[in-house]
Design a protein around this nucleic acid. Structure first.
Lengths: 321, 321
DNA sequence: TGCCCAGTTTGACTTTTGTCGAGAGCCGTG
DNA sequence: CACGGCTCTCGACAAAAGTCAAACTGGGCA
């Protein structure tokens, strides 16, 4: 009878089922199809964002700890993923929470900047689908040349796909071999335009990277372990959108940074809502740096990290007084 | 063991089930409660807006007819409820659609003006629950003195309850017996403030009333059938937020209108999004008046009414050319 | 034309979910 | 302190939803 199940039918089935509260067999008889087909359509409707099921993340901000952190670090909002007892995998828990928080922060018509990394990719991976056609997702930094699992463009596109949004990729390498070339490329109209468009974003999503041999920058060959160690001794404290920052959250004045094509930190700071998600406890120092540099307004972390941040803030205040 | 099931538990159950995709029995064993309890918590979570299930209403704007209407009447968006074949009750269908559309239009932080009537109340009644604490719902017009089924304050409060929002009621009668008293009451600071706050709304929801003996204004005793007929012969074309408007959508200069306490039409027009919902085919003329008066930017109607509006618009254009 | 393929549909089966009445803890009251 | 009234909880059953292999469909291709 029909070969294209026609988006139309999926819509109708979803409407009758979710908005009218009919049972699947009732929907089936209304539409003259079998109940099994209805079940399939409904799955598709959920997968494409025609229906949207979201759960409030309030539970995780209601926490006293979260409130204290907001105060201590002057952040707009903090979500804390529990890490106690029998939670299977705390880092997944953080990603799931972050995905929900992200969806809650997105508004229609938004322009969203997305960086890259394992964390961002995990978030994209567990994010549920939504239908936000007038949203644009832009890539905050250049691409990794080598084939690599969590490429910036993959992160951007996957999130855009989940949201049914438009994805704006950025076709330049993240790191070039000379400063001259990087400068020249940044001056290219296409690149220039994309970089200057970053500050017009309404929302940004990124994590922070650690300055060690496990960093993606080392794994993908942008830096050698030795260079990384060097940078560390020069004061490198973390990595944000491919750039090395110092403990105060400022761009570290180093050759590497001058070879990078990425959104300037000032542009990032111009974005009203900056959601930072950190999964690994080992990224304490980088996170502190990002917060110090005002690169974070909304934060999602695990309970353990939250406690460390709070202890640190308390110690700092005490010392100051 | 426990007497308060604690919102906390509902949250956790909802989180594990909807965000993590666990089965109810897995949630039950995580939380050490029976599966039956989990099922109950989940129902509560849906009922209180902790989880939100919404379906896209795009299907109803995608219609060619809807597009044509948007153009012909210069409206921002039109949704058309199908009325063909075996739909049980077209007016319920319109209310369900309107409720979804309304929820789709609400944004966090919004201030929403709500009028009254059977239609508005039906919408409130089928509206699903949401969790929008920073939303305020304000009543657009005074109350009916007599005990009556669809009172303005009921409409306002019910919608506020569904959204978990703050409801702002308006404790003045809709109609007073003398113009002097109405004028004096409007000058009262409390009332004055509420009325002037109307134009600060981001979204308004109302229907239109017909000028006949079936009008709520007659049923509740604010006007006699004879007075109504009189007004009709004076050019009354419809009722909006308790006020009589003429065919051009302007306030009719009549004694009755001067005795009414309600938001001025100019304030309504100052609201960016004005959602008008009409269920009855008999309200063709009042709806035309409302549209003519610029009181409508977003419209939800049945297919039949949509066709009539389009035919009328085409006829008018033809005559003009 | 006839065959194959990719995607859709279906009936039958299994798993998951909703619901109901009974039981149990809590509290104010007589 | 015994008593309903109240709400929460649980086990068991009934209802609904998910799944899978097999049948079917229409279109492209040799």
């Amino acid at each position: 009878m029909a070969i294209r199940p026609a988006e139309q039918l999926i819509h109708k089935a979803a409407w009758l089922y979710y908005a009218h509260g009919l049972r699947q067999d009732q929907v089936a008889s209304q539409l003259n199809i079998s109940r099994a087909s209805v079940a399939m359509y409904l799955r598709k409707a959920r997968e494409t964002g025609i229906v949207n099921i979201s759960t409030s993340t309030q539970l995780f901000t209601d926490d006293v700890l979260a409130r204290k952190l907001e105060d201590a670090l002057s952040l707009d909002a903090v979500w804390i993923a529990p890490e106690n007892d029998h939670i299977a995998d705390p880092s997944t828990e953080i990603a799931v929470l972050a995905a929900s928080v992200f969806l809650e922060l997105v508004k229609k018509g938004d322009r969203i900047g997305v960086a890259w990394g394992r964390t961002v990719y995990m978030i994209a991976d567990v994010m549920s689908y939504a239908d936000l056609q007038d949203v644009t997702v832009v890539q905050l930094c250049g691409n990794l040349g080598a084939p690599y699992s969590y490429r910036p463009d993959q992160c951007t596109m996957e999130i855009a796909r989940r949201l049914n949004a438009k994805g704006l990729n950025f076709y330049a390498p993240l790191v070039l071999s000379t400063e001259e070339l990087a400068r020249a490329l940044r001056a290219e109209p296409v690149i220039r335009e994309q970089l200057s468009g970053v500050s017009e974003c309404d929302l940004a999503l990124y994590s922070v990277g650690a300055v060690d041999a496990d960093s993606h920058l080392v794994k993908c060959g942008a830096l050698t372990p030795n260079e990384m160690a060097d940078l560390r001794s020069q004061g490198a404290a973390g990595v944000i959108a491919g750039q090395i920052i110092d403990a105060e959250g400022k761009v570290l004045g180093c050759g590497y940074n001058r070879r990078v094509i990425s959104a300037e930190l000032a542009s990032l700071r111009a974005i009203a809502r900056r959601l930072v998600v950190v999964q690994e406890d080992s990224k304490f120092e980088p996170l502190l740096a990002a917060i110090a540099g005002g690169l974070c307004t909304h934060l999602v972390v695990g309970a353990h990290m939250a406690q460390r941040l709070l202890d640190h803030a308390a110690a700092t205040t005490e010392k100051a007084s």
